[in-house]
């Protein structure tokens, strides 16, 4: 009996191991995603963006008037974590949701450090160029100034604790804070904070 068990184990174990090592596609927000305690993972961006968008939409702050969506610019999103992150991972998802819902459009022609997309400006520089049909070049006064700006901050707090002989437990708390400012009045008309707290001793898959 024992040799048989050994044989079966020897035959199946490599196959199981290979199965684990093979690359595969997974749902980006599903339970198979890898979870790192000290990092913001894809599913964290998705969760934070979803919850913040829901909060913004439910607040009624940016109801379109007569079907005309409001115009929003993206302000500064401070990264107060200890890792390099692309804050677009958060902002893009919020922008897409607002855009698809018809509540707000984002201007790419205005930004704190100049326009996000230089094309609006570049095309206007063709006004003096005879090679271009001037009727196809946007006239003056067409660009739309934003009604609101969206700004915020991402904060990270770390903690660790040792429980007896168990491995050290690490905890990371990520706070996603956003504010929407009415640019006419300078007042913050909506503010929200979403917390994501993760705990563990090492990276794991979330099941």
């Amino acid at each position: 009996m024992k040799p048989l068990i050994k044989l079966i184990t020897a035959a199946t174990l490599p196959a199981l191991m290979l199965g684990c090592a093979t690359a595969r596609y997974i749902d980006h927000d599903g339970r198979d995603s890898i979870v790192n305690v000290g990092q913001i993972n894809t599913q964290d961006w998705i969760r934070a963006a979803d919850e913040l968008t829901q909060s913004l939409l439910l607040s009624g702050t940016i109801n379109s008037v007569a079907g005309k969506p409001k115009v929003m610019m993206i302000g500064r999103i401070k990264n107060n974590t200890n890792q390099h992150i692309d804050t677009d991972s958060l902002m893009k998802k919020i922008r897409v949701a607002l855009n698809k819902g018809g509540r707000a459009l984002t201007t790419t022609a205005v930004g704190l450090d100049g326009p996000e997309d230089e094309s609006s400006k570049a095309v206007r520089e063709l006004r003096a160029d005879d090679e271009f049909n001037q009727a196809t070049i946007p006239g003056k006064g067409n660009l739309i100034s934003p009604d609101y700006s969206l700004s915020g901050k991402i904060i990270q707090n770390n903690a660790r604790a040792k429980r007896g002989l168990l491995p050290t437990i690490k905890q990371s708390e990520f706070a996603f804070q956003l504010s929407m400012t009415d640019l006419k009045t300078g007042l913050a008309v909506w503010e929200e904070e979403k917390l994501i707290v993760k705990q563990g001793s090492r990276a794991a898959v979330s099941w």
């Binding site: 500064r76 999103i77 401070k78 990264n79 974590t81 200890n82 890792q83 390099h84 992150i85 692309d86 804050t87 677009d88 930004g111 450090d113 100049g114 996000e116």
Partner: peptide
């Protein structure tokens, strides 16, 4: 322009 905030992290 996208990653400017990361300068402060560094």
């Amino acid at each position: 322009t996208d990653d400017r905030e990361n300068a402060l992290v560094s």
